[in-house]
Structures are given as structure tokens and as C-alpha cells.
Design a protein around this nucleic acid. Structure first.
Length: 469
RNA sequence: CGGGAAGUAGCGUAGCUUGGUAGCGCGCAGCGUUUGGGACGCUGAGGUCGCGGGUUCAAAUCCCGCCUUCCCGACCA
């Protein structure tokens, strides 16, 4: 197996190499489509599981809406259709004949879900209505990249209806912080900046968009998740109304929010190194791999017992007994796959009563008594988790530059390969246009202390400027 | 969709300038020897040279069109 391109030599090539060599995904036969292979899908299932738990804890329920949406639905909200029409896939034929009304393959489900919310919601007693769906969506992409931007991708999209604007806003922010930020920071070990999108970067049809922005190891920003406050735009167009306790017919206030398979791209690019993936233990489908050094029944029995004990201690463990393949090859392969802890089991371990454990994040090796493995490994996993978050945090801090003028910010973001921060009052819509000329965008707006700006006057905010995926 | 680069076995590539019927490395299969950081030997399988058309006695090679991938832009989770 040939080695992967180094990050420094060519970051995009490194990214491609990692995806193919770790067998995460392949390109599909139709441009922009992707085949997610078992290891990649295992990661997605871990992401789904963790998020689903948090989404349900936030009160939302899962449901499923159709893939095909009447084209006319999209046209009901003008900004929405303007935003999406260039990237729609439209079905014009079915059952061997031309359809009376073309159906679009959902690029997102705001419209169809609203059509049903309008039907289901009558009274303030029906609110809030909190729905989530796990689905695939299609947006015809001009420049696809595996996980980051594919024509078809998997995601969850939450859609909620509320009795007041404040409640809707609070819920959009609750999802952003308690579901997305919490998951990204504590499970993915990716520190994210939560902030508000500028008008230019907002979701088509939203009144406010809130975002989680992560920094990748090439210094570029990646939008990892968004939560939108939709106001009453969709409810006005779809006639989604409820009666208040006073008997007044009122349009609901809504939110929508989503994260996608793009998170796999974030995971790869936020933590990966020249040896391949580095998976945070909380997320890793395999947390510990036990490598049997040579074919021997005592070694195998000891390894099996260790695996059993670790499983009972709650670790996700796999045994590598493929002694036919050389030791070096196997080690390289497990490093490539990013498994956080590797335990080596061979004659030496039997003789000394110690096992060798190797940590993927720092590539350090330690020797510990076999008998303490079950207590040490879970602690090690936890310290790797914290170490990776800390490392990602330092990397981001080292690549974040305060600036005072627009030119200064642009230069620092480009030269320093990272984020530049500058008072939003120095940028504005005109400034965003100028930044775009050098390939930069305002990723989001935050308060001066970096927290989420809720209902604050824009003039006091700080803009995060960066190149973005 | 605009600008650039490239498509030859699963992957990486030679051959193309100067047309003559495809080679190498890795990987893969079988057998044997190995086994603590990408093992070795022997044997073997695997190719519509991206697709379509044209020129020619003859095309991987020359010409035209298209498709795909990567990079840079515009668009986006």
C-alpha cells in the first residue's frame, strides 16, 4: 500500500487519499454522488446515534416526509425558491409518461412539511410542534467533493412550529447549543464558533441563521451545522395558523435546523494527520484494537480474554488476528483508520505480564501490566478525547488573528491561513463584497467575548473572516 | 458553468513527439518461508488504452465531439 500525500504537500490530495485508503467512501457513477462504504457508514451511524439522542432530549420526534415534492410548493416562498432553484433535480416523467406537475427531489423539506403542519395545527394546544427527519436530499452541485459537497447527501432536518417569535428563536438556539455545539465539542472534539450569519450568508427564506463553524487543519472554515429562525414566512405562505387562548387566528413561528454527512468531512479535516484519520474515542466505531502479533493459541486466548474484559468495561473493541499479514502493515492500517488505542499482544506480553498500548493521537507507546489494562484503557480513551479537543482548540487559537481594518483582516486570514476577527461595523455588506474578491467570507458574527449574539445590535458585533469550504 | 491539468489492469504509471496491435511497480490468487513498524521466493490471473466518431493498410499514439476526475473561480450543508 502506497503512503498518503502529506497535508503540507497538498491538502486536498491528502483528503482524497485518506477517504480512499481508509475505505470511507467512493465517488458514485453520477457526478457528485457518493457511495458511503461500511467504515464511513459506521461513523455516520455513530454521529446519528449521538445526535438523535440529543434531538429527542430537546423534545423533537422523528417522522418521515416524501422524497418528491410538487414543484409548486417551492414557489410559494420567493426567497426560498430563488435560493434553491439553480440546484434542483426535477422529475418530469413517471410511469412512462410526462407528469402533469413536475416533482422536485427535495433539496430540503420546509415546504412539504409546512403543507402538513398547516393541516395538523389548529390550536395553541398543538404547539410547539417539534419534528425531525433523517433523510437524503439532493442539491445539484457544480463542484462536488466527497462528504463536503455532494449532490445527494444524508442529513437530519428539524422543523418546528411555535406560538411566539421568542419561543421559536429560543428553540433554534437551544438546538444550536445543546444539540449541535455539545455534540461537536464533546463527541467530535471539534471546537466550534457559534454565531449568527450575515444577511448574505443566510438560509434562503430565513430571518436569522445561526451556525457552528469549525476550523480545519488547513485553516479553512467549515460550516458544520445551522439552525434557522424562519419567522412567519412559511406559515404565511402555507396558511399555518393556530387559535390563541383568546381565540385569535395567528400564524405560527418556525425554525429549521440540520447537519449532514458533511460532518464526516469535518472529522477528517479537523483531526487527520499524515498517518491518516485520528478519531476521537467518543465517536470512534472501534475504540480499541487488539493486535495479535503472531499465531499462537496462548496469545490468542489472552487477547480474547482481554477483549471480553474491555467490552464489559464498555469499550468498543475489535481483535486483529490476521497474523498472515505482517505486523507493520497491520499497524499502519489501524493508524490509517484512526483507531484511538492499539493494544499489542505477543510473546513478549506473555513473558513479562505487560501489554503495549499505542495511542493514535500522539503515536506514543506505553507498557502497562496486563492486569491493569481494563482500568487503564477507559481512562486513556478519555484522556485522548480531551487531548484531541485541546489540540484542536490550540490550533484554532494559534490561527486566529485580531484585525482592525478590512485590508488587515483579509491579509491576516490569507497569509496566516486561518480566521481573522474584526468589528462588523468595519465590514458591512460592502465589505463582504470586497472580501469575496479575495475568496473570503464572513463566517459568522459573534459578541466581543465570543459568545452567541442574541438580539444584539449588529454594530457591536465581531465578524469572523475566513476562507471556507 | 468559465480558466487550467489529467484519464492506459484495483491503485500508481511507461509507451504518444516520430502510428505497427501494451510494459513496469504495488495490490490480487495459489504454494512455501516469515511474523515486535508498510516481509520474501516461486507460479499465476487480470486490459473494450475514459466514451463515440474520423483519418489510415494499420490508432493508446494523429484529428473532432462528449464524459469523468482534480485544481482555481462563481453557487452551496
Amino acid at each position: 500500500m502506497s503512503s498518503i500525500t502529506s497535508q503540507q504537500a497538498d491538502f486536498p490530495a491528502w483528503y482524497q487519499d485518506v477517504i480512499s485508503k481508509t475505505e470511507l467512501a467512493d465517488n458514485g457513477p453520477v457526478r457528485g454522488t457518493m457511495v458511503i462504504r461500511p467504515y464511513g457508514y459506521a461513523l455516520w451511524e455513530r454521529i446519528q446515534g449521538e445526535l438523535d439522542e440529543r434531538i429527542k432530549a430537546a423534545g423533537a420526534q422523528n417522522a418521515y416526509f416524501p422524497l418528491l415534492i410538487p414543484e409548486s410548493y417551492l414557489h410559494r416562498e420567493s426567497e426560498h425558491v430563488e435560493g434553491f432553484s439553480p440546484e434542483l433535480a426535477v422529475v418530469t416523467h413517471g410511469g412512462g409518461r410526462e407528469l402533469e406537475e413536475p416533482a422536485v427531489v427535495r433539496p430540503t423539506s420546509e415546504t412539504i412539511i409546512n403543507a402538513y403542519f398547516a393541516k395538523w395545527i389548529q390550536s395553541y394546544r398543538d404547539l410547539p410542534l417539534l419534528i425531525n427527519q433523517w433523510a437524503n436530499v439532493v442539491r445539484w452541485e457544480l463542484r462536488p467533493r466527497l462528504f463536503l459537497r455532494t449532490t445527494e447527501f444524508l442529513w437530519q432536518e428539524g422543523h418546528t412550529a411555535h406560538a411566539s417569535a421568542e419561543e421559536a428563536r429560543d428553540y433554534a438556539i437551544k438546538i444550536l447549543q445543546e444539540v449541535y455545539e455539545d455534540f461537536m465539542v464533546h463527541v467530535m472534539a471539534v471546537p466550534v464558533i457559534t454565531g449568527r450569519k450575515t444577511a448574505r450568508e443566510r438560509f434562503p427564506g430565513a430571518e436569522e441563521s445561526w451556525t457552528c463553524e469549525g476550523m480545519m487543519r488547513d485553516g479553512k472554515a467549515l460550516q458544520m451545522g445551522t439552525s434557522h429562525e424562519l419567522g412567519q414566512r412559511f406559515s404565511n405562505m402555507f396558511g399555518t395558523t393556530f387559535q390563541t387562548p383568546e381565540g385569535v387566528d395567528t400564524h405560527v413561528w418556525q425554525t429549521s435546523w440540520g447537519v449532514s454527512t458533511r460532518l464526516l468531512g469535518a472529522l477528517i479535516m479537523a483531526h487527520g494527520d499524515d498517518y491518516g484519520l485520528r478519531l476521537p474515542p467518543e465517536l470512534a466505531p472501534i475504540q480499541v484494537v487488539i493486535i495479535l502479533i503472531s499465531p499462537d493459541s496462548t496469545i490468542e486466548a489472552t487477547g480474547m480474554q482481554l477483549m471480553q474484559e474491555l467490552k464489559e468495561a464498555g469499550c468498543r473493541v475489535e481483535m486483529d488476528s490476521d497474523t498472515h499479514t505482517s505486523y507493520g502493515r497491520r499497524v499502519t492500517n489501524w493508524e490509517l483508520k484512526g483507531v484511538p488505542v492499539r493494544i499489542e499482544m505477543g510473546q513478549r506480553e506473555l513473558d513479562t505480564g505487560n501489554v503495549t498500548i499505542a495511542l493514535r493521537d500522539t503515536r506514543e507507546k506505553q507498557s502497562i501490566p496486563v492486569t491493569s489494562t481494563v482500568t487503564v484503557v477507559p481512562k486513556t480513551l478519555s484522556s485522548i478525547q480531551h487531548g484531541m479537543l485541546k489540540q484542536a482548540q490550540s490550533f484554532r487559537d494559534e490561527h486566529t488573528y485580531p484585525a482592525t481594518t478590512l485590508e488587515d483582516a483579509a491579509e491576516k486570514a490569507i497569509e496566516g491561513k486561518g480566521f481573522a476577527t474584526i468589528p462588523w461595523s468595519k465590514v458591512g455588506d460592502k465589505g463582504e463584497e470586497r472580501l469575496a474578491e479575495s475568496g473570503l467570507t464572513v463566517r459568522c458574527l459573534v459578541t466581543e467575548d465570543g459568545s452567541l449574539p442574541v438580539g444584539m445590535d449588529e454594530k457591536d458585533l465581531l465578524a469572523i473572516i475566513a476562507k471556507a469550504y
